[in-house]
């Protein structure tokens, strides 16, 4: 149990996917202008991350390892993620139109979100068990949502600021991300092994 809590906290805060591993920077810069948008994107990503962790764990251990096919790792992982996103999209559209309206437009963007593939690769690299993998997925998703929402909050405030023209857009976003990364380092002592 302690182990699982540690994995969760590490993935969500001390080793935040966006701010220490640089995963999912594209949506972090692209979809962080409004808080509602950020929440939607974050929830959709968390959902897909958790599912992807489950499915790829099973595929990796029961197919790739059993039949000695490690070289098909990347191809099969990316196919799984892409089809998962598609299935989730179709499923949500059928069952809950309201949820689809809220999350729908973000789903296609998730396929090329490096955070998902990164999550799966880290999970395999660190040899997590199934349960650890799932907790890792949820934690990473929460961390992603947290970073995205904080960023969106700051950017909403920034709109009233007088930013030097060359830094508008990506420039100032990256610099803020740097400062956020610094402040997240303060959580570093939270886990001492």
């Amino acid at each position: 149990m302690i182990n699982l809590t540690l994995i969760f906290i590490a993935a969500a805060i001390t080793h935040n996917f966006v701010l220490t591993y640089f995963l999912g920077i594209c949506p972090f810069i692209g979809v962080s202008k409004r808080i509602e948008q950020a929440v939607g994107m974050g929830l959709a990503t968390t959902f897909v991350m958790t599912l992807a962790a489950c499915v790829t764990w099973v595929i990796y251990h029961f197919i790739l390892i059993r039949f000695g096919l490690p070289f098909l790792q990347y191809v099969s992982f990316i196919i799984v993620i892409a089809s998962l996103v598609q299935i989730v999209e179709m499923f949500i559209r059928k069952t809950s139109p309201a949820l689809y309206r809220a999350l729908g437009i973000y789903l296609p963007l998730i396929t090329t979100n490096c955070a998902i593939l990164g999550l799966v690769l880290f999970m395999v690299l660190r040899e997590y068990t199934f349960l650890e993998g799932v907790v890792f997925g949820v934690g990473a998703g929460c961390g992603f949502t947290l970073a995205l929402v904080i960023m969106a909050g700051i950017r909403e405030e920034l709109e009233c600021c007088d930013i030097p023209k060359p830094l508008q857009g990506a420039g100032i976003t990256l610099i803020i991300a740097g400062i956020l990364a610094l402040s997240f380092m303060g959580f570093g002592g939270l886990i001492s092994r």
Binding site: L19, T20, F22, P164, K165, P166, L167, Q168, A170, G171, I172, T173, L174, I175, A177, G178, I179, A181, L182, M185
Partner: peptide, 22 residues
Amino acid sequence: ALPAGAFITLGFLVGLFNWINI
């Protein structure tokens, strides 16, 4: 060498690129 340095350096480089273009 830390993540923060990467973000800030790239942020300023993007700014420099835009400034030259302007």
